[in-house]
Nucleic acid binder design. Structure first.
Lengths: 209, 209
DNA sequence: ATAATTAACTTTACACCGTTAAGTAAAATA
DNA sequence: TATTTTACTTAACGGTGTAAAGTTAATTAT
């Protein structure tokens, strides 16, 4: 029966190789240039072989989408040690932006692109990493509220609002919509905008009023 | 020479028909399903005819992109009558969201999609409508600052921050990233989030401090 | 040991896409 | 009437995702 196990392992290995090639290509050349055929070429298999391991192209990118959220959660994990919830909230915002800047293609796939997500929200099971990410934000927000920040507000709604703002900055940056801004402000624009947003959050704290 | 004029007119007419067909298709079925070939089919010409009127596919969508900004500016125009700058700022935010909700495909094209913009920022000339849109926001913001709001802040940076937030909400909505939010909050999520943001802006006003 | 079955992969093919080059028929000009 | 120009089409190239059928080697059954 050990021979069956080896086969199993080999299948798993090839699946991994496909994913690895897809990841490399889409990080090197972007998602647009990553086709089933180019993936196949890189691993030296015929294109249709990929369909023995993945349902369709979306299925490949769904796997990368999943990896993206694991990576994002790695950005978040160290922040669990920031004990003050409001400081943690600010740190989350900054970590999120750094993730976006350092992993533009992943960010695109996870939060901007249309295709593979429709099938994800239905499949639920691998979406758990996504929920963990947003969960961390909600928990942080709830802790803030418990500590007296943003009194009387709905943590989920407030978390979404913060996410929206930070996502807005990141997606405008990634999709090149920042050219309307004068050159003087272009540098570090994302962080500058988020600093303003954080300042707004600070002013909402009762002690500042 | 009147015959030449008629010809000129007819050429202009066909160009208009192409654009109209493209617009219909992309509003009905989305940009993905709007190909040169489907546009050609709808106007009952061969696909290659389109290339006699537009440089390439991007050129077609650049024209629609332009139309989109004209439409957005129509949402903004009535707000010029709102004399109080802070009220105007709030109205701009709401108008922007309404535009996005009521013209999802246009919004996608104007603020999310990758393709046709790279060529736009270079061509400048039809980008004027886009500049008018953002200019209106900046002017409003400047008026706010002049009136004592957001003291000492950079109007451009603050305008960008506001835009980011509102864009974040709209793009998460359009690209279906709101399913993490509980059903209770799903209704009118965009406006709920923006209301929170506006509340933050209000708290930044010195008189509230 | 030989025959039948299954697994892993490839070849071929279909229907789409954007785009270019060559061809055509009618209209305008010489 | 002959020539050129205009407006358009046909055919074709190289790309895409994907399904069906074919192939070859390994495994299992007799």
């Amino acid at each position: 029966m050990t021979i069956a196990k080896r086969k199993e392992r080999q299948k798993e290995e090839l699946k991994g190789k496909i994913l690895q090639a897809a990841k490399e290509l889409f990080m090197e050349r972007g998602i647009e240039a990553t086709s089933i055929r180019t993936i196949a070429e890189r691993i030296e298999y015929s294109p249709t072989t990929i369909y023995l391991y993945f349902k369709d192209k979306d299925d490949v990118f769904r796997a990368l989408h999943h990896e993206g959220f694991i990576l994002l959660n790695q950005y978040f994990r160290p922040l669990e040690n920031v004990s003050d919830p409001f400081e943690r909230l600010k740190a989350v915002a900054r970590a999120y932006i750094n993730f976006a800047i350092e992993n533009g293609e992943f960010y695109d796939l996870m939060f901007i692109i249309r295709s593979p997500l429709d099938s994800i929200t239905k499949s639920e099971e691998d979406w758990v990493e996504g929920k963990r990410s947003f969960g961390f934000l909600i928990n942080t927000m709830s802790a803030c509220i418990e500590k007296g920040y943003f009194k009387g507000m709905d943590p989920e709604l407030l978390a979404f609002t913060c996410w929206s703002m930070v996502h807005g900055v990141c997606s405008l940056e990634i999709r090149n919509r920042c050219s309307v801004i004068s050159e003087m402000n272009q540098n570090d624009l994302a962080h500058k905008a988020v600093n303003i947003f954080i300042e707004m959050l600070e002013r909402m704290h009762p002690s500042v009023k």
